[in-house]
């Protein structure tokens, strides 16, 4: 895959149209890596010049900050801001709602001002730049969509993902708890990195049950943590062969005429 880093661009005295902020999950998590690659492929199809930071990218600090570790957050965030400002970055797209929220809402106060979009919004605006195929058989199925907290409630991005699904001519069947009332997957607030507190159920199990009840064979997510949590929950319910969890970018790529 042909992915150019920011430093390579800079060495050639060029700058890309947009920086793709891959994020830690997108870089290291096997499932999220597939989403990263899918999104890069879409950008290539749409002939959008983009760069990644590669090894110069660090955790945005979201889990540290939400765990309460402000020192660590400031350290990692300020290093990122130094890097981003050094390259005079103007526009950033990311596939992770947590990175998105931190870059967009929390970096400005630290001195990092960029135009930040989530891949969901970027896909919405740039979908017209790729050719989409529509095959009749598979389009009769419904898909459902899981709102991630950090896109939905945290940033009020409710319509963009639904708009993309509708442009793909996918029939969306909403979950019971959706949009601003969506149920968390259970990973936010640094829960991804710790065991659950004692309770009678895991949050992703609760969500998986709702997804099974919904009856759609495809669940769309757009957050690497949600992907993991939903997949685990569905697996726990032994439905992994019946219900597939896809990132929005994967659904888009699947419909692009190559």
């Amino acid at each position: 895959m042909n992915v150019i880093t920011m430093s390579e661009f800079a060495n050639n005295g060029q700058s890309p149209e947009i920086l793709f902020w891959v994020g830690c999950a997108g870089s290291f998590d096997a499932r999220a890596q597939k989403v990263t690659k899918a999104f890069c492929e879409i950008l290539n199809h749409a002939k959008i010049s983009f760069a990644i930071l590669g090894n110069e990218e660090k955790c945005t600090g979201d889990p540290a900050r939400r765990a309460g570790n402000e020192f660590l957050f400031q350290m990692t965030a300020l290093q990122n801001i130094q890097t981003l400002n050094m390259y005079a970055i103007k526009k950033i797209v990311t596939a992770c709602p947590h990175c998105f929220n931190t870059l967009k809402n929390e970096y400005p106060e630290l001195g990092g001002n960029y135009y930040v979009v989530h891949h969901t919004q970027y896909l919405e605006t740039h979908l017209s730049e790729v050719k989409i195929k529509f095959d009749e058989q598979s389009d009769t199925q419904t898909v459902t969509y899981h709102d991630s907290c950090y896109l939905g409630r945290a940033n009020n991005i409710i319509d963009s993902p639904r708009e993309v699904l509708s442009k793909l001519k996918l029939d969306l069947k909403e979950l019971k708890r959706s949009k601003l009332n969506g149920l968390c997957c259970g990973a936010g607030g640094a829960q991804m990195f710790k065991e659950d507190e004692p309770g009678n159920k895991r949050i992703n199990t609760e969500r998986a049950e709702e997804i099974i009840e919904n009856g759609s064979k495809i669940v769309t997510a757009n957050c690497p943590f949600c992907l993991t949590m939903l997949q685990d929950g569905i697996k726990e319910k032994n439905q992994q062969d019946n219900i597939m969890v896809y990132d929005l970018a994967e659904l888009v790529l699947n419909k692009i005429v190559k």
């Binding site: 895959m1 992915v3 880093t5 891959v22 830690c24 997108g26 870089s27 290291f28 890596q33 990263t36 690659k37 890069c40 990644i52 590669g54 090894n55 990218e57 660090k58 955790c59 600090g61 889990p63 540290a64 765990a67 309460g68 570790n69 660590l72 350290m75 990692t76 290093q79 640094a190 991804m192 990195f193 710790k194 065991e195």
Partner: peptide, 30 residues
């Protein structure tokens, strides 16, 4: 705070990612 978070903190501080990884960040692209 929760002990589970300590490795995450250490990894962010030392490796720039909540997971301590031995591969490059852009390994996926290769």
């Amino acid at each position: 705070g929760p002990g589970d978070w300590v490795p995450m903190f250490n990894a962010i501080e030392n490796a720039g990612s909540p997971w301590q990884m031995s591969v490059d960040r852009d390994e996926w692209s290769k």
